[in-house]
Design a protein around this nucleic acid. Structure first.
Length: 285
DNA sequence: CAAGTCAAGGAGCGAC
DNA sequence: GTCGCTCCTTGACTTG
């Protein structure tokens, strides 16, 4: 059975051009493969369909079983985390955690899970690792249990890095592979940093906005004062403190300077507390 | 190890 | 209710 079925929602006109998902249903050599492509964002940058949201493999011939999406979980007591070499341990444990299907290390689920799309892509690029050539190991999607996540979070709060001993112990405690614990910590560090950066960016953005507003107000004020001087030059020669509407900033003493600069023709006004630079007084804050 | 990326799977939402 | 879709989270991988 070799037929190719492609259904592009974009073709049927149901999708918007900038945010659409393509899905291919492909039947090849007795296998039916559903490919989803998430096409998002600015197509001018990258212009690549982003594989997403899973795939479904079904054997249409009578000689094989179907391959569907499945869930892998870190189940306690599945015998993982033993003293085997890491590579061997990884293979055996990954296979045994598959839920909802026979837990054979050489099952179809193992070969077709997770990394299938990336393998297709990589094969196009002619870079296939030994492991991939084996076809026995691929990326698995694990969802940690609430308890596992909570414990990992606790440990992360204590220490954002792990030494090999801690990693091993934690893996044993959680019934995960050390590699999984390691990856979890790496991801957690990266995402914590990202979150921090976002918060900091937002803070600086608001700060910048405030300063820009302040600057606009000061510019406007300056314009007003300049026009005021042009209209009433003698008025401006009065002591600044005597000018209605202007008061002396308690933490600045520019009054004397004001009369000095009068002679050079520039206008200096005692800073109104309203316009006090927050940075100039930050020490008192 | 950090940074970048891929991709599974679940939540949410509108249409039918 | 469920189907189709988008968006988001997160485990895993790759690269430097």
């Amino acid at each position: 059975m070799h037929s190719l079925l492609c259904s592009h929602p974009a073709v049927s006109g149901k999708e918007t051009p900038m945010d659409m998902r393509d899905r291919d249903d492909v039947r090849v050599a007795g296998l039916s493969l559903r490919l989803n492509y998430d096409v998002r964002g600015d197509l001018s940058v990258g212009d690549r369909p982003r594989p997403s949201a899973g795939f479904k493999l079904e054997r249409s011939s009578s000689t094989a079983t179907s391959v569907e999406p499945f869930l892998t979980l870190g189940l306690p007591g599945d015998g993982c985390g033993s003293a085997k070499a890491q590579a061997e341990e990884d293979k055996a444990c990954s296979a045994s955690r598959v839920v909802g299907r026979p837990s054979s290390p050489h099952s179809m689920a193992s070969s077709f899970s997770g990394g299938y799309l990336s393998r297709i892509k990589r094969e196009k690029g002619a870079r296939v690792s030994d492991e991939e050539e084996d076809g026995a190991e691929a990326r698995k999607k694990l969802r940690l249990t609430r308890e596992q996540s909570a414990l990992l979070e606790d440990r992360f709060r204590e220490h954002s890095t792990l030494d090999p001993k801690q990693k091993q112990a934690l893996a044993g405690l959680l019934n995960l592979r050390p590699r999984q614990v390691e990856v979890w910590f790496q991801n957690r560090r990266a995402r914590t940093k990202l979150k921090k950066t976002e918060v900091e960016y937002e803070r600086l953005r608001k700060c910048c906005e405030t300063l820009r507003d302040e600057n606009r107000r000061l510019q406007k004020e300056l314009q007003e004062l300049k026009s005021l001087k042009l209209l009433r030059p003698r008025y401006m020669q009065l002591p600044a403190a005597a000018v209605a509407g202007f008061t002396m900033c308690p933490s600045c003493s520019t009054m004397a300077a004001a009369s000095d600069s009068e002679e050079s023709g520039s206008v200096v006004v005692a800073p109104n507390p309203r316009f006090c630079n927050p940075f100039a007084h930050s020490a008192s804050l």
